[in-house]
């Protein structure tokens, strides 16, 4: 099934192979092996559940990066109807690392923004490996503003290894583009539903990540820097990324415990790529639930709630006037 196999997936594939053999045997010899097959399938699910409950943070990062993992447009294809993609930031270009458009889900019309990776080398070059340029963030803002004007909620899918570090990106104001989005999303007068579906690296993720509710897939990761980037700086060795991933506490469970996300969206046994349809169905239910929850909110009330949500983020302690100075 999977063309790319993670170390801890190998035992699953062994069982998959057995199941397939048995199915072939059944067909060929006209036997009824259904009870044996369902037993093996059950065994596979159990094994996947057991393995995945014990994954390290670094292993989850690898699941989030699995080349078979569904991307933004896969979910669009599976659960969004009447999707119309819109293109371009009206200033410079159309950044294909971010997809924007109008869609319908469970009868609700909405604006979609989401980072998009490529499935193969050719598509990855087109999508820049899901690493947006400033024009991508500006296109996303344009789409969000349309949502605000025409009363459509915004759903944002986060899946990026980071905003692109390049000469053109700096020339066109990568930092300004991200900062502007934070500023504008803070006061966007329509609901914003954030879902971290894969990788959430740093400001590149947050640039389309301010919202009224933040949901996170079970095997997604989200933090201030990529594990490799952190390892290169603090350990002076990229190979220490697994250690950095542990230290950064970047898993969905960590973020829930830290109060940084609202809910974890469970993935099917083996992760989203083992059953994309099931993953998509779960996602669809969650999105519909959130769209319906925020539907009645007045924009002013929504904005006030959003500002308060971010106001409270941070961990520090406060003592009375330590060492005041004047000059």
């Amino acid at each position: 099934m999977a063309r790319f196999v993670l170390e801890f997936e190998k035992p699953f594939l062994e069982l998959v192979r057995k199941i397939e053999e048995m199915k072939k045997l059944q067909e060929k010899n006209n036997l009824d092996l259904s009870s044996e097959i369902s037993l093996l399938e059950k065994k596979l699910t159990e094994l996947q559940k057991k393995t995945y409950s014990g994954l390290t943070r670094w292993q989850r990062v690898r699941v989030a990066r699995h080349p078979d993992r569904p991307y933004t447009l896969d979910y669009v294809r599976m659960i969004v109807t009447d999707f119309i993609e819109i293109h371009g930031d009206r200033n410079y270009a159309d950044d294909k690392a971010i997809v924007t458009g109008f869609g319908t889900i469970g009868g609700h019309k909405f604006v979609l923004i989401g980072q998009q990776k490529g499935r193969d080398t050719k598509e990855n070059i087109k999508r820049n490996f899901g690493m947006p340029h400033p024009e991508g963030y500006r296109k996303a803002l344009r789409a969000m503003k349309l949502g605000e004007r025409f009363g459509l909620p915004v759903v944002s899918f986060i899946d990026t290894p980071g905003a692109f570090p390049g000469v053109g990106a700096e020339e066109r104001g990568q930092a300004e583009a991200i900062a502007r989005n934070l500023f504008e999303m803070a006061r966007l007068g329509t609901p914003i539903i954030i879902v971290i579906i894969g990788e959430g690296a740093s400001g590149g993720a947050l640039g389309i990540g301010i919202g009224d509710v933040v949901l996170m897939f079970e095997n997604a990761w989200y933090t201030v820097i990529s594990p490799e980037g952190c390892a290169a700086i603090l350990w002076r060795d990229k190979a220490k990324a697994p250690e950095a991933a542990e230290a950064l506490k970047l898993s969905a469970r960590d973020l829930l415990e830290l109060g940084m996300i609202d809910r974890i969206i469970p993935e099917p046994p083996g992760g989203a790529h083992w059953n994309p349809e099931k993953m998509a169905e779960t996602l669809k239910k969650e999105i519909i639930k959130e769209i319906e929850r925020f539907k009645g909110y007045e924009p002013e009330k929504l904005i006030e709630r959003r500002l308060q949500r971010y106001r409270d983020m941070g961990v520090y302690r406060e003592v009375k006037n330590a060492r005041p100075k004047t000059s």
């Binding site: 934070l182 803070a186 830290l258 500002l307 983020m313």
Partner: peptide
């Protein structure tokens, strides 16, 4: 943003931007 506070540091970008509005 400070790596040693992970996601909490990242969220300070959001927090300060919200306040500036």
């Amino acid at each position: 943003a400070r790596m040693q506070e992970g996601i909490l540091s990242l969220m300070q970008m959001a927090k300060t931007a919200c306040a500036l509005t």
